[in-house]
């Protein structure tokens, strides 16, 4: 195991997570705004989740070829569900009274979203993002099957030759990375929450 593998793993997860947020939160908002878009969006996110990782990566590889971009897109599709779903649920659970007050104050739809609804829904949205981050660290081991590198190769080799210490060292680094990611997210959450705080 080398530092390069760890970095690669981290880079793939980071890129995928950034894209997940960029795509997932707007999708959640869309599902919340438009009743008609709701079911298709949520079902799509759920469906993606049920495609086996290896099959999904195989399909993406047809378009993007071998390597890290394939893994990043695969992770993105896999991480959508918690983000989309929690964004949608968080927004729709905002107290209607608050929404009415905001509307009464003459706020536009988007302004209301940014100023009132998003801040209230923020904890749940962020919980979704954190779930996505931790899951992505684990899922990225599949990179070893499509030429993406990362920690997966160590772990699979360890399993293949039944070398417990190799499996455990790979897994420990993976777990440590997940703890690290979660820690960074927790810090970020506190910072953003303070700034986003409704009152």
């Amino acid at each position: 195991m080398t530092a390069r593998m760890i970095l690669e793993h981290f880079a793939m997860v980071g890129a995928a997570l950034a894209l997940t947020i960029l795509l997932g939160v707007p999708l959640g908002v869309l599902a919340y705004f438009y009743e008609r878009a709701r079911r298709p969006i949520l079902w799509l996110a759920e469906l993606l989740q049920t495609v086996p990782a290896l099959a999904l990566l195989g399909m993406i590889m047809v378009f993007l070829g071998a390597g890290k971009p394939t893994v990043v897109i695969g992770l993105l599709l896999y991480s959508l569900l918690p983000v989309v779903q929690n964004t949608y649920v968080g927004l729709s659970d905002v107290d209607p009274a608050i929404k009415e007050v905001a509307q009464g104050m003459g706020m536009t739809r988007l302004y209301r979203l940014a100023r009132v609804e998003m801040p209230i829904a923020f904890p749940l949205i962020f919980a979704g993002i954190r779930i996505a981050a931790v899951t992505a660290v684990g899922t990225a081991v599949f990179a070893a099957f499509v030429g993406g590198g990362g920690l997966g190769s160590v772990i699979y080799r360890g399993i293949r030759i039944a070398n417990m210490s190799m499996i455990l060292s790979g897994t420990l680094v993976l777990v440590a990375m997940a703890i690290g990611c979660d820690g960074i997210m927790a810090l970020l959450e506190r910072k953003l929450r303070r700034r986003f705080a409704p009152r």
Partner: peptide, 8 residues
Amino acid sequence: ISVLQTVP
């Protein structure tokens, strides 16, 4: 607990 999730 969340980290257990990462173990492949």
